[in-house]
Design a protein around this nucleic acid. Structure first.
Length: 424
RNA sequence: GGAGAGAUGGCCGAGUAGGUCGAAGGCGCUCGCCUGCUAAGCGAGUAUACUCCGAAAGGGGUAUCCCGGGUUCGAAUCCCGGUCUCUCCGCCA
């Protein structure tokens, strides 16, 4: 969330930024509530002060064996008033935080203004889409032809939008996970973590999924736990409520997890194939760093995610999300989109964001500068490195051959016992 | 699931016949001094959040000893509820 002081002092700027995101922003309720709240705070604090002073006085009188009944009587009334104020205060506090928790992050100045994905400028294009002298098949057709993907049976086991891999398909998914983790840990200096796949409400709130987006999550019925929609949640929460040493930064983690999303509101979209599933695998990159380095870290994070596609020889492009297309918590986001030949479009395969201190404030993750007093909020970043199912889909489509077989990218072959291709 | 123990500052760890405890002591860290020889000595400082005053420097106030209630003029200390951790038993991949 945004700092309450900042919002108070920059109401118009915040409203304007929200408008850029395509949100109607009316913070007059916030302003009034904030003033009420601070008034209550001042009254109750001065009463508490009075109480603290008098309590000491009572202790002194009693020790000296002198009567204190009159003061105690006065304090009984003060205590009642303090209780009233506390109640009112907790109500205004709750109202204020409800408003603030629902306010998205402010876009970084370098983010272009725009309404939706059609306004996202392309920042970079890498590789050349393969030229086929036959009509390329969609990955679900290839997968079913090779008998490695089975969406029909997955539906029987669970329901729509769940994947079921067999044989070389399952192996390929696993190989991709290992390949990505190895690349990020060995070449990019990340530390591997394997976190819980369910998290509590506080963790979801810290990274921004809650309270606004509960309908996008899978929630356990008997527990106040949620299935993670991305490893960003458990991994960012590793350091919740901690004060880190500046010398420890940046902290870089990479994690493989399955991800669970209800995909509410996406009915009818991408109903076939691996593109939009309720459960999918992802290797995530997460960084904690100082504010002055976070934009450089965003660029390197992006490059590290791109490196996966470069090594797999999959053509892609990078787009910079405009203000209207960015996620709730992000200040700046690059999407990496891989080429999907069957549809002839680039599809998102990674999203790399700098959240600045938006998540850190919610999660209370700070650091201490060497030789300086006090603490500052860290900046957090994360990006997919990459979405595994979509990567597998891209390999199938980009490296398919007219006979229905698929050529395995050379970088991946050692992870598959030397397998060079998948044949029916 | 059953029984018991516990939760204090960056870390360790005192502190319960309720008051002068934001909290001893140690470690760590910062600054200064001393000394110089590899590892010590001395001194000072060292939680966080919110809020008010101030241009600022800085100063005032409040809260926080797991969380939420309660008792009381007053609670780290007493009572109730919850969460988490540890030990033992049970169950289990």
């Amino acid at each position: 969330m945004l700092e309450i002081k900042f919002v108070r002092q920059n109401l118009e700027a915040v409203e304007a930024a929200l408008a850029d995101r395509g949100q109607s922003a009316d913070l007059t309720a916030f302003k009034a509530m904030d003033e009420t709240h601070r008034g209550l705070l001042q009254e109750s604090e001065s009463l508490r002060h009075r109480r603290n002073v008098v309590s000491e006085e009572i202790a002194r009188l009693k020790k000296a064996g002198r009567p204190a009944e009159a003061l105690m009587e006065e304090m009984r009334a003060v205590a009642v008033r303090i209780k009233e104020l506390e109640k009112a205060q907790s109500e205004t506090q709750e109202a204020l935080s409800a408003i603030l928790m629902a306010v998205p992050n402010l876009p970084h100045p370098s983010v272009p203004k725009g309404r939706d994905s059609s306004d996202n400028p392309v920042a970079k294009t890498w590789g050349t889409p393969p030229a086929f002298d036959f009509t390329p098949q969609a990955h679900w057709e290839i997968g079913s032809g090779l008998n490695i993907l089975d969406f029909e049976r997955a539906t029987r086991i669970t329901g729509a939008r769940f994947p079921l891999y067999f044989g070389a398909g399952a192996q390929l998914e696993r190989a991709l996970i290992n390949f990505m983790l190895d690349l990020h840990t060995r070449a990019h200096g990340y530390r591997e973590v394997l976190p819980p796949f369910m998290v509590n409400r506080a963790s979801m709130t810290a990274t921004g999924q809650l309270p606004k987006f509960e309908q996008d999550l899978f929630k356990l019925e008997q527990w106040d736990y949620f299935l993670i929609p991305t490893a960003e949640v458990p991994v960012t929460n590793i350091h919740r409520s901690e004060i880190l040493e500046e010398s420890a930064l940046p902290i870089c983690y990479t994690a493989y997890t399955p991800c669970f999303r209800s995909e509410a509101g996406s009915y009818g979209k991408d109903t076939r194939g691996l593109i939009r599933q309720h459960q999918f695998n992802k290797v995530e990159l997460v960084k904690f760093c100082t504010p002055e380095t976070s934009y450089a870290e965003l660029e390197s994070l992006l490059a590290q995610a791109e490196a996966v596609l470069v090594q797999l020889e999959l053509p892609y492009r990078v787009v910079l999300l405009c203000t209207g297309d960015m996620g709730f918590a992000a200040a700046k986001t690059y999407d990496i989109e891989v080429w999907m030949p069957a549809q002839g479009v680039y599809r998102e395969i990674s999203s790399c964001s700098n959240f600045e201190d938006f998540q850190a404030r919610r999660a209370d993750i700070r650091f201490r500068r060497k030789g300086k007093k006090g603490t500052e909020l860290v900046h957090t970043l994360n990006g997919s490195g990459l979405a595994v199912g979509r990567t597998l889909a891209a390999i199938l489509e980009n490296r398919q051959r007219p006979d229905g077989s698929v050529d395995i990218p050379p970088a991946l072959r050692t992870y598959l016992g030397g397998m060079k291709e998948i044949r029916p």
